[in-house]
Amino acid sequence: MIEIEQQGTFKEFFPGFFVIGSNGGGEAIAFDLRTVGLYPLVAFDMTNIDLVESVWPIAPDFDAFLDLIGLSDE
């Protein structure tokens, strides 16, 4: 994540997102920093810079994301 952020790979075309990985199929998984408060997890199509079309929600926050993938903090 640090390397992705330092390289600025997504900043030009996908501003406001902190990318944490991908699904391996051309879609990035990121925190949406464009919101105030909790940052939702989203996915976006790395080949489509139209943020209205290419961004879709995964979870409202990181804890909900962990619940979705079956991990707990215990």
Rank of each mutant, 00 (worst) to 15 (best):
8 G>W: 03
38 L>M: 12
15 P>C: 05
70 G>N: 09
20 I>P: 06
4 I>G: 05
10 F>H: 07
29 I>C: 01
11 K>G: 10
62 F>A: 05
44 F>Q: 10
28 A>M: 08
4 I>N: 11
12 E>M: 06
57 P>Q: 12
16 G>A: 01
24 G>W: 04
5 E>L: 14
30 A>L: 04
9 T>W: 12
37 G>T: 05
34 R>H: 02
20 I>E: 13
21 G>T: 08
40 P>H: 00
42 V>S: 03
71 L>F: 05
20 I>G: 11
30 A>T: 02
73 D>Y: 15
13 F>K: 12
74 E>N: 08
25 G>A: 14
67 D>V: 12
60 P>K: 04
59 A>Y: 05
61 D>T: 00
43 A>S: 15
47 T>Y: 07
53 E>H: 02
49 I>S: 12
51 L>N: 06
42 V>Q: 08
47 T>R: 12
15 P>D: 06
16 G>W: 00
4 I>F: 08
58 I>K: 01
64 A>T: 15
10 F>V: 09
42 V>F: 06
20 I>Y: 11
69 I>P: 04
19 V>M: 12
14 F>V: 04
74 E>W: 07
33 L>W: 08
33 L>M: 15
67 D>C: 14
10 F>Q: 04
70 G>D: 15
64 A>R: 05
27 E>C: 04
73 D>E: 14
16 G>M: 00
41 L>W: 01
32 D>F: 02
71 L>P: 02
7 Q>H: 09
32 D>C: 06
67 D>R: 13
68 L>S: 13
72 S>L: 15
8 G>P: 03
62 F>C: 01
1 M>V: 14
3 E>K: 13
12 E>K: 09
21 G>R: 07
22 S>D: 06
47 T>V: 10
5 E>C: 08
60 P>I: 03
26 G>E: 01
65 F>P: 14
21 G>W: 08
54 S>R: 12
6 Q>P: 11
37 G>V: 06
43 A>F: 13
34 R>M: 01
35 T>W: 01
73 D>S: 13
23 N>Y: 12
49 I>D: 09
38 L>F: 08
24 G>N: 03
35 T>G: 03
20 I>C: 13
59 A>E: 14
23 N>R: 09
57 P>F: 06
57 P>N: 10
17 F>R: 10
3 E>T: 12
71 L>Q: 09
11 K>A: 15
58 I>C: 02
